[in-house]
Simulated scan of single mutants.
Amino acid sequence: MDAAAATTFHHHRRKDKVVVIMGATGSGKSRLSLDLSTLFFPFSEILNSDKMQVYSGLDITTNKIPLHQRRGVVHHLLGDVDPSAGEFSPSDFRHRAGEIISDVTNRRKLPIIVGGSNSFIHALLVERFDPELNVFDTESSSPSSLVISSELRYNCCFLWLDVSFPVLSEYLIKRVDDMLDSGMVDELAQFFDPDATEEMNRTGLRKAIGVPELDRFFKEHPPGSIKDEDRVRKGAYKEAVRAIKDNTCKLSKKQIRKILRLKRAGWDLQRIDATVAFTAALTSDDSWSDIWERQVLEPSVKIVNRFLME
């Protein structure tokens, strides 16, 4: 094949189709991915793009979907990376996830990418990725770092799950309480390393929300030194929990800003408003599941079906 023919082939090659579910933390991405995968079962597989959930360990703290709730759907890069191997970078994700997508599509199945780490999603999807540039760094003095390419290496169907921030923040606060009730403190007590350096705390799984906040608490009150009922009454514990909730809400705001930047850059994000369903869930309205199906799942299925028919 001569150079001109090769160039023509590159520009006209058929790109693999992928579905990408985006949204802030806690916005229902995992639920939607499972709902869609179940409907398209066994022709779809899920690829996790959450930068904390890629690591093994801290399943409660990172809010991984338990195995028994995965409905038999194959999940990739969900707890697959050894945290002791060091930072799993956007470049690492681009390489590993790219291989997985090739494998899934070669088996004539549909990859569904789901996760809140927009830096991972950007690194994976853009045609040309420069690991030296942080396109989401709005404080950078370099104009080139603010340019987000709309030239993508896959044929993407973007579903953006959006929840009004007041409702989402209320849900996130409740979710932290549920995670604490599920054993998050004990999980983090076992993970606690009194000898961890500041440098170690800035890399990999140790950056997960909950780790630094409770590390500070454990340094004052080492695990096992006091009874659980005494620990809960400690002001330092309440302060740590408050910090976890505040930082979770701050993360969701940051993620929403990144999504809006991608949309402004020309990414064709199809917004699905899940606010009514979340409001119903927060008020223990038994109809919330019906609302979810009607206002979130059904429009998502229509969008994906239309995409697959193109």
Rank of each mutant, 00 (worst) to 15 (best):
D92E: 02
K245E: 04
Q69M: 09
C157D: 06
K17C: 10
V114P: 01
I259Q: 13
F40E: 14
F43R: 15
F88R: 03
L32G: 14
D2R: 05
E45D: 10
L124G: 05
T8R: 10
E199D: 15
R231I: 07
I100P: 00
T7S: 05
L269S: 04
P223S: 09
D130F: 04
L34M: 11
C249A: 12
D16N: 03
I46D: 10
D162N: 15
T283R: 01
D228G: 09
I303R: 15
I259Y: 02
P131E: 08
V19N: 13
H221K: 15
D181C: 14
C156I: 03
A243R: 03
S91I: 15
E87S: 03
Y55W: 07
P222F: 00
L124D: 00
V104Q: 06
V211M: 08
E151L: 13
R94W: 09
H76N: 10
P83H: 09
D290R: 10
R294V: 00
E87P: 01
F158L: 03
R31H: 05
V211H: 08
E229A: 08
H95K: 13
V74R: 11
K245C: 04
E139G: 03
F307N: 08
F129Q: 11
G57P: 08
R153I: 07
T283E: 10
R14D: 13
N106H: 07
Q69K: 15
D59Y: 06
L172H: 08
D181M: 14
L297W: 01
V114Y: 08
D178H: 12
D286W: 11
S145C: 01
S182T: 08
V232L: 15
A208D: 04
V163D: 04
A208H: 12
E220V: 08
R71M: 10
L297C: 10
K250Y: 11
V54A: 02
G204T: 08
F158M: 05
Q270M: 07
S30H: 04
R294M: 07
G23A: 12
V135Q: 01
K254M: 14
C157F: 07
P90D: 04
W160N: 12
H95T: 14
K234E: 11
L36W: 07
P194H: 08
E199N: 14
P212W: 00
R13S: 12
V18W: 06
A6N: 11
V163P: 04
A280S: 00
L39M: 15
G72C: 07
F129M: 11
F9H: 14
I101T: 06
I148H: 01
G183R: 15
K238E: 02
R271Y: 02
S287Q: 03
G28A: 05
T25L: 02
M184Q: 11
V276Y: 03
G224P: 12
